[in-house]
Amino acid sequence: MSGRWQWFHRLGSPKWFYEKTTRWLPWLVGAMALFLTVGVAWALLFLPPDYQQGHTSRILVVHVAVAGTSLSFFPLMAAAGTVTLVWRIKLADMVAKHAAPLGAWFTFLTLASGSIWGSVMWGTWWEWTDSRLVSMLFQLFLLLGVISLRTAIENAETAARACALLSIVGCINVVIIKYSVDWWNTLHQPSSPISMEVGNPNGPEFWVATLVMIVAVYLFLAVSLILATRNEILERENNAQWVRELVAQAR
C-alpha cells in the first residue's frame, strides 16, 4: 500500500496547506465578518416580526443556518475518512480530528436554538414529536462516539484510521436514522403541534436573511476548521524544518 501514493502525499502535504491558508485566511475572515454582520443585523434589526411568531422568528434565522451547517459534518468526516483510509493523507485526518468536536458543538447549538425557539412557540423545551430534533440528538450521540473513540485510542495513527472508519459507518447510519426517525414520527403524531416549517408564512426577506446567515455560518465553520487544522499541523510537524523556521521567525 505505502510507497505507491507518495506523490499524492505531497499534494496534500501539511506544509502546502499551511502556506495556502496563510494567504486565504484574511479573505475568509473578512468575508465571514461581513456576512455575519449583515446577517445578524438583518435578522435582529431589520427583519419584520412574523405575524404569527412575532420576534421569535429571528431565532430561526440562526437556527436554520446552524442546522444546515451541522448536517454537513458527517459527510465531511466520511470524505476525510475515505482519504485517510485509502490514500493515507495525514492532512485529511487533521481536518477530521477537529471536525468532530466542531460538529458536536454545531449540533448542540442546533438543538439549543431549536429548543429555545420551541420553548416560545410550543411552550416546551423538548418535543419528541419533532423528528428533526430527535435525529439531531442522535447525530450528536454519534459525533460524541467518534470523539470518545479518538480520545480512547492512544496511538495517533490507529486512532486516525479507526475514527475514519467509524465516520464512514456513522455517515451511512445518520442517513438511516434520519429516515427511520421521520417514519417513526409520522406514526407517533396524534395531534401535530405547530410544525417547524420555516417557509410558509414568511416572505422573501426572511429567506434572504437566512441565506446570508447560512453563508456566514459556513464561512465560520471553514475558518474555525482551518485554524484548528493549522494548530494541529504545527503540533504534529513540530520537528519539521519549515515549522522550526516559522517558529524562529515568530520569535
Binding site: 442522535f138 450521540f141 454519534l142 460524541l144 462516539g145 470518545s148 473513540l149 480512547a152 485510542i153 490507529t158 479507526a162 472508519l165 467509524l166 459507518v169 456513522g170 447510519n173 438511516i176 436514522i177 427511520s180 426517525v181 417514519w183 417513526w184
Partner: peptide
C-alpha cells in the same frame, strides 16, 4: 475498533447504541 483498548465497556455502548436506533424503531 476498540478491541485493543484496556477498558472499553462504555465506549462500545456509546458507539453502538445510537446506531441501533433504526432497528429499535422498526
Amino acid at each position: 475498533l476498540t478491541v485493543g483498548l484496556g477498558s472499553r465497556g462504555l465506549i462500545l455502548a456509546v458507539i453502538t447504541v445510537p446506531m441501533s436506533v433504526p432497528v429499535l424503531i422498526f
